[in-house]
Amino acid sequence: MPEPPSFDEAPLVLRAKAGDDTAFADLVKHYERRIFRLAKNITQNDEDAEDVLQESFMKSYENLDRFQGNSKFYTWLVRIAVNEALMKLRKRKSDKSVSLDEQLDTGEDTLVREIAVWDDDPEQKYSQDELRSILDNAVSSLEPIYSTVFQLRDVEEMSTEETAEALGISVPAVKSRLLRARLQLREKLTRFFQRKGDDVLAYL
């Protein structure tokens, strides 16, 4: 089910900044699902994701007067949520090096191990619920550095630049991660979507 296409956050943000709490609550209602999904993708843990969701909206409410409107409110909110989620990860893993901006090895950017032709409308083989669980599982099996980029770019259709800003990474990093995310997901979905009777061929 796609998002309603014409949500304009700007008037709500202005009202919220002027002290209208109802407007802020409307922003929360509009974005909570996406922030929760993002938090789950990064922390890979429901309990942590719940905390991240709450802390992100609390922080954005507290700091709303510092939001300048140079970027979209949602971009700013994602940035806050990503930081909160990374802090959770660091606590849980007691690993100070957790971040989304680690260097990638560039040698393995063409992850295609198998290949099979898919049905024309492969998603129609499944019910809505089945499809959602297949897609959710595929995304959550990716490393957070890939799932976050994929979610923002390909699912929510943010621009490359906005995605870079929201995640605090460079534009080239967004592009290379997106490629790897797409190829990995393609690979994971092949099992569900390939045309019956076709063999999976070894490739590359």
Binding site: W118, R186, L189
Partner: peptide
Amino acid sequence: DTTKKTLKVFKGMQAS
């Protein structure tokens, strides 16, 4: 072809 189909099934998918 399969990457295009991948993008198509995910595009605009509303979060749970």
